[in-house]
Nucleic acid binder design. Structure first.
Length: 218
DNA sequence: AACCAGGACGTGA
DNA sequence: TCACGTCATGGT
């Protein structure tokens, strides 16, 4: 068995299914995981039927952008503010004033940049008219880099695109599978060449890596 | 009280 | 290409 696959097996055995991507709507619902620390109680372990509608799809897109180099509890605050102000919607974000938007997402940090990113993405999202974007389409959208693009493709559109984040790099570096100076795409194909292109597997693997990295710190 | 979070972009070499 | 500075709030 490859190192990559055995890493997945051991992480899954340690932590079990993670129920990513967390959603606001699942707050307090049965079936979600109430034990996750300091975050939206919107996890849905072992249930891969999410997102169930356009609203949840869009919420994940916005969450992915807000989560750029930002801790999830801060993203949660921003998402709740957006929801309270009825701004968790592409048309509303486009028509909202910059001040209104940046005010809502302030807890997620980088609020000036992210205000611009959310507006640009919302226009892009509307132009899709419900269709699944290509990876290139997403990368052409200002404010969407490789990790955000792959997160959206994997968790919104269930495309088997492996998400590489700082935790992934750190773990592979500690396992001496990579040195520094491997590109994002290098690491991405390291996983994808070794795993069956199964979106559930990819969703679970990335979530497990994040969970593992978080637990190591405490 | 520094340090870092589920990054991306602009710049100069 | 690529290394580095910038963006910003809130946890630990």
């Amino acid at each position: 068995m490859s190192k990559i696959l055995s890493l997945y097996n051991s992480l899954y055995e340690m932590y079990g299914p993670q129920g990513w991507w967390p959603l606001l709507e699942l707050h307090g619902k049965k079936g979600c995981n109430p034990t996750k620390s300091g975050s939206i109680k919107g996890y849905h372990p072992d249930d891969y039927s999410y997102p169930k509608n356009k609203r949840q799809q869009f919420e994940i897109c916005i969450g992915a952008i807000l989560a750029q180099n930002t801790s999830w509890p801060n993203v949660e605050k921003a998402l709740i503010n957006l929801k309270d102000k009825r701004l968790l919607d592409a048309e509303k974000i486009i028509s909202a004033s910059d001040k209104m938007l940046s005010d809502a997402i302030r807890p997620a940090g980088y609020f000036n940049q992210k205000t611009k990113k959310l507006k640009i993405f919302s226009k892009f999202y509307k132009s899709l008219k419900g269709k699944t974007p290509s990876r290139g389409d997403l990368l052409n959208c200002w404010g969407v880099g490789p990790e955000t693009a792959d997160s959206i493709l994997l968790y919104v559109y269930k495309q088997p695109e492996f998400v590489v984040d700082t935790y992934t790099k750190r773990i592979l570096r500690e396992m001496k599978i990579i040195t520094s100076r491997h590109s994002y795409d290098d690491i991405k194909s390291l996983f994808e060449d070794d795993l069956s292109k199964d979106y559930k597997l990819f969703q679970e693997f990335h979530a497990l890596i994040v969970e593992h990295a978080k637990r190591l710190k405490r």
